[in-house]
């Protein structure tokens, strides 16, 4: 009988693993909470560092899943699991021979950082809001007019002990550079300021895009974290920071404030991990067996990981892991 692999999460990681498993002659079952496949990438507009439309990537994966007739259960939330079964929120149990946990990450809720006024003041957005607006073709205007000044704040909900998120989310620096360039292109008259603690440009072409943002888009990068945002009488937002490279306090008002929100661990990671006897890292993400040859393996036989369930990752890294996890599952099932 064809071996069944239970994949929790139908984001890009889950879909990519399923495609590889189907091609290896196995029977993957994708269990997805939402009504459609795709995960977070569904909500992104153009991807760093090449401005590639995100929709194309999701569409291609969905088409590959459909073309192979892969079994997909949408609207199904996994609440407990082990290598042989997944229990759903509706009480059903799905059985299989191995499992891949690919349930991804959760966006940091910017409202928790009350000092930045997200949800309180008009014209404070998150990076996810900007993606959704760009996707919908609605631009963040101020009373119908183009914004004259825009500030981006890096590390919102990352590298911050105050909100128990100690890790770096990795993708937000490059997302901030990309979105600054996109807004500059749409509002050429606007002055754009990125407030950062460190600029982390780890991927191919990222540093080059950063330099282009400085040189061609004239984005101002100010090293210093905004301490607070407050509304002004004329409906703008006043921000305060230290310009640490000059050692002086700095303040200004802006028309838009964009918070580059981090990637945090899912709330249900702990429960899923406990049900299967898995370990979580201090960050709340799942802990792989090691960070090298065992980076897509768990400490439990027959359970594997793919994508951002173990840490913040880019799409490319996520897809690579999905293929590696599928290969490991196939090797594991061969001997049973």
């Amino acid at each position: 009988m064809t071996k069944r692999i239970l994949i929790i999460g139908g984001g890009i990681a889950g879909m990519r693993s399923a495609v590889s498993l189907a091609d290896a002659g196995l029977h993957p079952v994708v269990i997805e909470r939402e009504a459609v496949l795709g995960g977070k990438v569904r909500n992104w507009h153009a991807l760093f560092p090449t401005f590639t439309p995100a929709a194309g990537i999701v569409e291609e994966l969905r088409a590959a899943v459909a073309a192979r007739g892969i079994e997909v259960l949408t609207g199904c939330t996994a609440v407990r699991f082990d290598a042989r079964r997944v229990e759903l929120a509706d009480g059903r149990t799905i059985e299989g021979d191995a499992a891949i946990l690919a349930s991804g990450f959760t966006l940091f809720d910017a409202g928790i950082k009350e000092e930045y006024g997200y949800g309180l003041y008009e014209h404070v957005y998150t990076s996810a809001d900007i993606e959704r607006m760009l996707l919908a073709g609605t631009l963040p205007t101020v009373n119908g007019a183009a914004p004259r000044r825009i500030a981006f704040l890096h590390c919102v909900g990352s590298r911050d002990e105050k909100v128990c998120q100690k890790h770096c989310s990795r993708v937000c620096c490059i997302t901030g550079v990309k979105q600054a360039m996109e807004l500059k292109q749409r509002f050429p008259g606007a002055e754009i300021f990125n407030f950062y603690m460190d600029i982390r440009m780890f991927g191919p072409g990222y540093e080059e895009l950063y330099r282009e943002a400085q040189l061609r888009s004239n984005i101002h990068f100010i090293r210093g974290r905004i301490s607070e945002a407050a509304p002004t009488f004329d409906g703008r937002i006043q921000i305060k920071a230290e310009d640490t490279l000059t050692g002086r306090p700095l303040r200004m008002s802006v028309d838009l404030l964009v918070l580059l929100v981090g990637m945090r661990a899912n709330d249900d990671n702990a429960a899923l991990a406990a049900s299967a006897g898995l370990e979580t890292a201090p960050s709340g993400f799942l802990a792989p067996r090691d960070l090298f040859l065992g980076n897509i393996r768990s400490s439990v036989e027959g359970i594997f990981y793919a994508g951002t369930i173990t840490a913040p990752k880019t799409i490319g890294e996520t897809l690579n892991e999905a293929v590696a996890a599928a290969e490991a599952v196939a090797a594991y099932l061969k001997n049973r």
Binding site: R248, L250, R251
Partner: peptide, 10 residues
């Protein structure tokens, strides 16, 4: 009154 040290970009 000491001069403010703040860089006021407005």
């Amino acid at each position: 009154i000491s001069k403010p040290r703040t860089i006021d970009l407005d």
